[in-house]
Design a protein around this nucleic acid. Structure first.
Lengths: 191, 191, 191, 191
DNA sequence: TATGAATGAGAGTTCATTCAT
DNA sequence: AATGAATGAACTCTCATTCAT
């Protein structure tokens, strides 16, 4: 019968929020936004569907928070804007770290790729996605310019695309795709 | 009331089928499977929604036919299995042709990427997609083996991923992505 | 197997619209707007609930059409603005006609009184209701002015209120309320 | 932690009951029974919604108590049954007092009129409403009989209706309706 | 006594599918 | 072959009510 402090209650609420968000992420990633119902999320989280509306205003708010929160989280961990100048060592670190990130939150990245191609989602988040990607591209363009590559921007965009493509193929079948060998090749070819 | 020959009737039917499929493709690519209603497809095609069920058993059949038909169409046009041996000239041709294909049917490829990440679709078509991709990978693995690359399979998979990633980024914003410059870089790096 | 002409189909649709509207009117009058569910209306009309949305955009549209249509209908039948001048004979006609109207469409008037007191409804239709009542009041004010009554406007408003109050009490228990005797008294007192 | 006497506790409980009832009255009058949620009432009263169930069995009990309590309250203040005989002075007092009552608790009367037309409410309270109105009508019928009016009952019912109608119109737009002028007219016409 | 997280039935609405015409 | 009115299951969301704290 120990009465719970306000802080404890807040923590419990935060835990439940995360529970809902994780369930939702998993399902959105697998079945898409429209393919995932509130009922499915509630069942996966083991709660009543009405409760979701205590924590999120509606379904759209839920995916928004999921996507923006995900983007923020990664931007925090991995900010390429530190000084804007990339050395060769840092380049290698950058590639390594990117794939570590990918492996650490495969569900989010699956969601990212599912979403990123849909018109409605691009309309919802288009600018956010660009804000998220652009700094990477800029730092890389700079890197190749300093190495006197003729087409620095195309090279940067190609590397960005490589990261996307590898991620995509890895996420589709993580057990089979030789991520680490491929990573070595990328470093060799693009450093 | 000019009587039509059986052949004419067959052709008319085929035309209407294609009309429905094209409308559906466009909408599925933009809004996803669940985000596209039969009504939307009928309106886009300028027909009554009931008529769709004369040509397709149901919504699922429609997308199935769309995806499998798309895959077949491309396999027909572009079969890398001719003799299984790729020369350097053929390699360049292969890359060029791939991007031509991409540009010639952007809608289909958008759909492809939207679908390819969804669990339900992977369960539906997973093997078909692999059947579709595997020959490319095999021919490329062979190619790199003959060039004595240490990690021929990883190299082939990397190139496959590169094609995917470039396609993805190009399709997201075709006006901005410098597809042809990037293609040159790919040929330089991977030939 | 007689094929139906477009006109026949239009008529059938109009019949179904009216069926839905009548069912809705009855229920809204008895249970109020929020107290009446789409399901209740569908059941009363003997149709599937989905069909209501073929004929009306949503529940709000349904009640709007009902109320505005009702007001229009009565305005058409009974326009006191003919010339704006009321004789004593016309006054009697006016009172008689008003109660005839009331008896001819009791359901609508019950709805009218249920709705007219709700904030949300006043916000929806407030001006429409006033537009509807004002001409009556104006014509009556004029009438009493010509009879040199000291407080013509108050007298007109009082008569308006009398009509409302009698309607209300009559509608609550039509079998018991002596409408016609009361009508005679009104004519005596207010002519 | 000053210990409170039983009496103090009872008083506190009564205060909170009234707080809930007043909040509910206001909302029911504006938005109707179904249009008012327990949450809205709790927020208006500044308490947790669960607490409402400590004081009232459920939502229906709350409105029942509200309506019955309201009726009782007015019956207490204003009992025309004192001796059953109305003089002309008392008649004037009766009309004056009625409108004072109306002005003193406009919210209740709005609720009264919203409710009085609904089938479910009539089924719930029909008899109570009649019990409440009948003595007035009886006393008035008596009054007109003593004045040798031919149709004393109709006259009494008309006056009752007048009071309702005037109340209705006054409550709809209290700032504009000339209640006191109208009252003078009523006294002139019906005394 | 007081809270508000939690529940689940039911609200309004959409939509794949059927079928009479 | 073609139409779109009709159906009802399933969707998102609300809300009266309960209950652990």
């Amino acid at each position: 019968m120990s009465p719970r402090s306000k802080k404890q209650i807040e923590e419990l609420k935060e835990v439940k929020r995360k529970l809902i968000m994780n369930s939702a992420l998993e399902l959105f990633a697998d079945y898409g936004y429209h393919g995932t119902s509130i009922n499915m999320i509630a069942k996966k989280a083991g709660i009543a569907k009405g409760l979701i509306y205590t924590y999120f205003e509606n379904k759209e708010s839920l995916i928004k928070e999921l996507v923006l929160g995900g983007i923020e989280e990664f931007s925090d961990i991995f900010d390429p804007n530190n000084d804007g100048v990339l050395t060769e060592e840092e380049f290698e670190f950058f590639v390594n770290e990117s794939f570590k990130l990918l492996e650490s939150n495969m569900k989010f990245w699956r969601l990212y790729f599912v979403l990123v191609m849909k018109k409605e989602i691009i309309e919802m988040f288009g600018d956010k996605f660009k804000e998220f990607t652009l700094p990477f591209i800029n730092v890389l363009t700079d890197y190749y310019k300093r190495k006197n590559h003729a087409n620095a921007e195309a090279e940067a965009l190609l590397l960005g695309s490589v990261m996307d493509g590898v991620s995509l193929n890895f996420l589709m079948d993580p057990k089979i795709f030789p991520l680490h060998k491929v990573k070595e090749l990328i470093i060799n070819k693009f450093k």
